[in-house]
Amino acid sequence: MRVGFFLSEALGSLRRNWVMTMAAVITVFISTVILGGVLVLGENLNRGATSLENRVMIEVFIKDETTPQQQQEFQQRVLAMPEVKEVKFVSKDEALRRFQETVGSYVTKNLPTNPLPASFEVFVNDADQVDTVAARFYDDPIVDNTPGTQDGVQYAAKTVRRMLDTIDLVRWGMWAATIVFAVAAVLLISTTVRLSIFARRREVEIMRLVGATNWFIRWPFVIEGFITGLIGAILGALSVYVVNWAVADWLRNSVDYLEAYVYPLWWQGEGWPLGLLPTLAVLGGVLGAVGGMVALRRYLRT
């Protein structure tokens, strides 16, 4: 294989047909931005939803007079339920500490006794099971109900679930959009490459006449497609990263309870095998190469 020759053929033709090259690079760039943007947005929603789901928690306040033994027995009983993921005990002291954290210690420092009840935080596997699980605690003797009510059991019910449903819907929409845009990107690349090859079909004809084998003709086009795809995808992936990072930064500084997720770059470990953005870039290159091969096919039939 004459790597040097093929490479210089490919680079030379990229330079000569620079208008077409620009068009192809921009096409890949836009496709990558859309695809990458959808993926980043989708992942953020995913994480948001997961953390919301984690917050679907039932607070069970217990009477002050319960013995530690009773508490332990309750905890084990709840843990045994198949729907329950985790149970945390919040002691009276802990409850007071948390309360002080939110309102400030000057409010509580003169209290003669600690008025806050101890509680259990029950986390369930699935937000849909909240009602069922909560209902089991209403009449438990350990629960600190105001007589005549069931206020010893607290959970954020309907709003949270409606929000989760919406996020679920958006999430599916995101995946659908991802697939549509991926297909669109492939079609755009192959159309662009086909156009540039159509402009050079005479060249291909002459190459065949001189006795060039199909692969000899193909390599420069494949390399050309790869380089085009790679450049477009790298630019696109970088833009996505920068915007993603900037938005996350802005969110962190302005809305303190919301945190956006930024895909780590590959050297930061974690994430996809190579990190999302290098994967996108390589994908762009491979798609470009495949586009080059596919588009050449009809000019290489004997």
């Binding site: 001189v210 084998t213 000899f216």
Partner: peptide
């Protein structure tokens, strides 16, 4: 076979009315 056609063509020099030179 079709795969051998390039080898055949390397043994045949061709000159055409329209020259068929690579323009670039």
């Amino acid at each position: 076979t079709q795969r051998k056609v390039p080898l055949l063509r390397r043994n045949i020099g061709c000159v055409f009315q329209d020259f068929k030179l690579l323009p670039n």
